[in-house]
C-alpha cells in the first residue's frame, strides 16, 4: 500500500478565488448547475452554496457583518470530502461501490453505485450528492486518477496561495504544526487544527486549520459514525418484537369466550 495521502487546507490564506472549484470541475468533467444557466444565491457572494454530486470542491464564504455593515469579517474555506480514516459512507454503502484506496482515500466507484443514497445521509459532513448525469452518488476522489500517475490533485495544483496542500499525511501534519507555530508567534492564538488527530473519526485525511469554531465554517463539532446507533436500535427493536409477539400470542390464545 502506498503511503496515506491527503489535503491540509490552511483557511487563513484562502482568498476565495475558486480556482480549486474550477480546476476540480474541469478535470473531473462535472456538469454545470442548472444546465449552465447562472443561479445566484441572492444572500451571499457564494453562489455554489454546497458540496454535492457536481461540486466536489466548494469555497465557503463565511460573511459576518454587523447589522449596519460597518464592521465585517470574511472567512474563506475550500471544503472537500474529508476522506475519513473511519468513513461513515463506506460503512453503510450496501453495494460495495465505496472503497478505500491504496492511498487511504475513500472513493465511490460510479459504475457500481446504484444511487440508493444511503451514503448521503450517512456522511457526517454532508459532502456527497447525486450527479444527475450519472444518477449515482459522487464526491471528491482526491483525484485518484491523477495520483495513480504521480500527479497532485487538480485543486491543489490550481490553488494560487497554497491554502490547499497535498502530500503524505505525515508531511502534511508536520506542515500544519509548523504553520500553527508561525501563527501563534504572530499573535493569532485562535488558530487550531480540525481533524488532524485520531479522535475525530480515526483522523481526517483532509484536515483544516481554522480560526473560529467548526460550526462557523459549517463543520460538525462532533462528527460521528452512523453505526454508533446500530446496536442500541437493534436491541430496542428486538425488545419491541418480543413484546409484540407475546401480546399477539396472548390475544390469539385467550379469547375469554365472549365479548370484551
Amino acid at each position: 500500500m502506498a503511503e496515506p495521502m491527503g489535503f491540509f487546507t490552511d483557511t487563513t490564506v484562502c482568498i476565495g478565488c475558486k480556482a480549486c472549484e474550477v480546476a476540480c470541475k474541469e478535470w473531473n468533467q462535472l456538469p454545470a448547475t442548472n444546465g449552465g444557466h447562472g443561479t445566484l444565491s441572492g444572500d451571499s457572494y457564494d453562489n455554489t452554496r454546497q458540496l454535492d454530486g457536481i461540486h466536489w470542491r466548494h469555497v465557503k464564504f463565511i460573511e459576518q457583518f454587523s447589522p449596519d455593515r460597518s464592521q465585517g469579517r470574511w472567512l474563506m474555506m475550500s471544503d472537500v470530502c474529508k476522506h475519513c480514516v473511519r468513513a461513515g459512507c463506506l460503512e453503510v454503502c450496501p453495494t460495495g461501490a465505496i472503497i478505500r484506496t491504496e492511498f487511504d482515500t475513500v472513493v465511490i466507484q460510479s459504475d457500481m453505485c446504484n444511487g440508493c443514497r444511503d451514503c448521503i445521509g450517512a456522511c457526517p459532513f454532508g459532502v456527497i450528492g447525486v450527479n444527475p448525469v450519472s444518477g449515482t452518488a459522487q464526491k471528491c476522489t482526491l483525484c485518484y486518477d491523477r495520483m495513480k500517475v504521480g500527479l497532485e490533485p487538480a485543486c491543489a495544483k490550481a490553488c494560487p496561495t497554497k491554502s490547499i496542500n497535498f502530500g503524505t499525511i505525515v508531511d502534511l501534519k508536520k506542515m500544519a504544526q509548523a504553520r500553527m507555530g508561525q501563527l501563534q508567534q504572530t499573535g493569532e492564538t485562535r488558530a487550531y487544527l480540525y481533524g488532524d488527530d485520531e479522535s475525530m473519526l480515526g483522523g481526517l485525511n483532509s484536515f483544516y486549520l481554522l480560526v473560529d469554531k467548526p460550526q462557523v465554517y459549517g463543520l460538525p463539532p462532533d462528527p460521528q459514525l452512523p453505526s454508533r446507533n446500530l446496536k442500541a436500535s437493534a436491541v430496542w427493536s428486538v425488545v419491541g418484537a418480543v413484546v409484540v409477539g407475546l401480546m399477539s400470542v396472548f390475544s390469539f390464545r385467550n379469547r375469554g369466550g365472549g365479548d370484551v
Binding site: 444511503d118 448521503i120 445521509g121 457526517p124 462528527p223 460521528q224
Partner: peptide, 10 residues
C-alpha cells in the same frame, strides 16, 4: 452535529 449533513432525499 447531525444538522451539518445533507439529505438523501428519500
Amino acid at each position: 452535529s447531525t444538522f451539518f449533513t445533507a439529505a438523501p432525499h428519500w
